[in-house]
């Protein structure tokens, strides 16, 4: 019961701050709400007994990536972004489309209630708490998921090379 309540609280915080991230005009505010989202997700990991993932989430995303964001915001000109209009003026159209979509989904789910029973709220009990989940993550990364783990290194390399290629200064060669 407590876990369910916590889950709903964390999810609510995560979703609301995620919406605020994209609607705030001030970039610094966006960054702070992003931190709130990421921390709330870390909270969800905690309720699932994935303490290791929660720690990684806080250290890597909040501690690492977000700090970088803030640094970048500090280094670029902020004044312009506040003046610029962030959105196009199609709120009405978007709202109508979304409403129609919601109605459609609601109708389908309502009609299909008997044919397709909705998922019951039985969360799979985590049996992993015994071994300690940092060990579990490590073992599955280096045994079962060895191949994707190795390809992830290529992925990171591609991202680094790509960033350098696109952002390096124009040299005399160009």
């Amino acid at each position: 019961m407590l876990e369910t309540t916590l889950f709903y609280i964390f999810s609510f915080v995560a979703i609301v701050s995620a919406i605020l991230v994209i609607t705030q005009r001030n970039v610094v505010h966006s960054a702070i709400f992003l931190a709130a989202t990421l921390l709330a997700v870390a909270g969800i990991f905690l309720t699932l007994h994935a303490e290791f993932l929660a720690g990684v989430q806080v250290i890597v995303y909040v501690g690492g990536i977000l700090v970088l964001f803030v640094f970048v915001i500090m280094l670029i000109a902020l004044n312009r972004t506040e003046v610029e209009r962030q959105f196009n003026r199609q709120w009405t159209l978007a709202a109508i489309t979304a409403a129609v979509l919601v109605a459609e989904f609601a109708y389908v789910i309502f009609r299909g209630k008997e044919t397709f029973p909705l998922p019951s709220a039985t969360a799979a009990a985590p049996a992993i708490a015994v071994t300690g989940n940092s060990q579990l993550v490590g073992v599955s990364l280096y045994t079962n998921y060895l191949l994707p783990f190795e390809i992830a290194s290529i992925l990171l390399l591609v991202a680094i090379v790509g960033a350098v290629v696109l952002s390096k200064k124009k040299t005399a060669e160009d």
Binding site: P148, I151, L155, V158, G162, V165, L166, K170
Partner: peptide, 24 residues
Amino acid sequence: LIMVFIGLEVLSIATYVLAGFRRT
């Protein structure tokens, strides 16, 4: 599916950069 996703990302990220290769 995780393999699919990682392969897809390697392909996509490399292609994004290739598309913007004429930087100027």
